[in-house]
Every structure is written in structure tokens, then in C-alpha cells.
């Protein structure tokens, strides 16, 4: 719960600071008016009724979503997320709400046309699992850490500069772009407020990985 609270604070900070926010206009349906940081800042990612997902944005469905985690966190596909340690989150447990369908056993002949109410929960669940796995690997790797390498994962609370560096890395890995100044400032504002560096790492990973910009194209 505490972790989620911290994550939410970071996410709110990211949303509040973005300078590219534009008022969405229903009439712009069909125009990819908002991209990158502005799509992220909308938070809803086009999921509300007046902006149906798919008009302005394209949902990054299960396989591409998984691919983003495999690529972004340098994880083997099998390590991304498993429920009860054995059932694939992507291919089995959360497949439908992540945009897929299972025709052979379940008779689902069509994928959902837009994200469902459960999609955000599944997205966060999968990202949190993947971030946790990466953290575990990087802790074990010590100086050879691949992703969480900008501050020690045990010890003192990370500094603003360390948080910024880590966030910049995650923006590149998840969102394929450089973080913008206000986004980094929002992250830096949490320096000293998260005592445990592991939690800081996971919180950053979850907040950036679960941003609308990483779920919609």
C-alpha cells in the first residue's frame, strides 16, 4: 500500500508537471494530435467515452506490451510475469484485458476493441512483476546491473541527480525517448522522500512503465 501511494505521488507529479498538456477535442477524432509526453499527461490515454481508444491512439496490445518489457528491462520472456509462479500473465491469465483473445478453448473469436475496466490493473500487475524481476537480477549483478544502476540498491536514499539519471534511463527504455525537463524535475522532487532505494527504483519503474504513453501508440 505504501509503495502504491508513493507510486501514485510520483505519477501525479509527472502528470502535473507536463507542459505539453492539450485540451482534448472530440472533433479531433482521427488526428493523432497528442503524442509523447502529452499523451502520457492525459492519463486516461483516450479511454474515456468522449475520446474512444483507437480514434486518436492505438492500444499497445498484449504481445507488443510484453515485447516492450522484454526489451526495456532486458528480461527473458518467461521472466516477465507469472501468476502463482507458473501461469503466464500475458498469454493466459490477463490475456483478454491486455487486448488478446483465446479462440481454441474459450471461444473468444475477437479481441476487445478497447481497454476494459480491468486493463489498468493487469497492466500494473505485469509491470510491477517485471520491474521486480529486473530489480532482483540487478541486485544480484552488483556492479553489472543493467537497468537499476544509477544508485546503490542498498543503503542511502537516492539523491535527486541519481533519481533523474535512473528516470532518464527508464524513459529511454520504456518510452523510447529522452525524458523532458519537467518530468525529471518531478522525479527529483521526491529525493529524500523515499528512504529505501529499492522502493525508489521499483516506484520509478512502475510509474514510467505504466504511463499511458507506454500503453498507447
Amino acid at each position: 500500500m505504501k509503495l502504491l501511494g508513493i507510486t501514485l505521488l510520483i505519477a501525479i507529479g509527472l502528470l502535473g508537471c507536463n507542459h505539453k498538456v492539450k485540451k482534448h477535442n472530440v472533433r479531433s477524432a482521427g488526428a493523432n494530435e497528442e503524442t509523447d509526453a502529452s499523451a502520457n499527461a492525459k492519463g486516461g490515454g483516450g479511454m474515456n467515452e468522449s475520446s474512444p481508444a483507437g480514434l486518436n491512439l492505438v492500444w499497445k496490445r498484449y504481445r507488443a506490451f510484453e515485447g516492450g518489457l522484454v526489451q526495456g528491462l532486458s528480461l527473458p520472456k518467461a521472466d516477465v510475469c507469472k501468476e502463482l509462479g507458473q501461469y503466464s500473465c500475458i498469454d493466459k491469465i490477463h490475456l483478454t484485458v491486455l487486448g488478446g483473445n483465446e479462440p481454441y478453448q474459450l471461444g473468444q473469436y475477437e479481441r476487445p476493441s478497447a481497454p476494459t475496466a480491468l486493463t489498468p490493473l493487469a497492466v500494473e500487475r505485469v509491470i510491477l512483476a517485471a520491474c521486480g524481476k529486473r530489480l532482483e537480477l540487478d541486485k544480484a549483478a552488483g556492479g553489472g546491473a543493467l537497468v537499476f544502476k544509477f544508485f546503490p540498491l542498498a543503503g542511502a536514499s537516492p539523491s535527486a541527480a541519481q533519481l533523474k539519471a535512473q528516470a532518464g534511463e527508464l524513459y529511454k527504455r520504456f518510452l523510447a525517448r529522452e525524458a523532458e525537463g519537467p518530468e525529471l524535475d518531478a522525479v527529483a522532487a521526491f529525493a529524500g522522500k523515499i528512504a529505501n532505494p529499492e522502493k525508489a527504483a521499483i516506484s520509478l519503474c512502475l510509474a514510467i512503465g505504466s504511463s499511458a504513453e507506454n500503453i498507447f501508440l
Partner: peptide, 17 residues
């Protein structure tokens, strides 16, 4: 935008930085 979309839709693997 086109690259981001085509990689995800047709490769199942999003475009990297």
C-alpha cells in the same frame, strides 16, 4: 508515429529509442 505503430502491430515488439 508510424514506426512506433508498425513495430508494435506487425512485429509485436515496440520500437526502441
Amino acid at each position: 508515429i508510424a514506426m512506433r505503430r508498425l513495430r508494435a502491430i506487425y512485429c509485436g515488439n515496440p520500437a526502441s529509442y
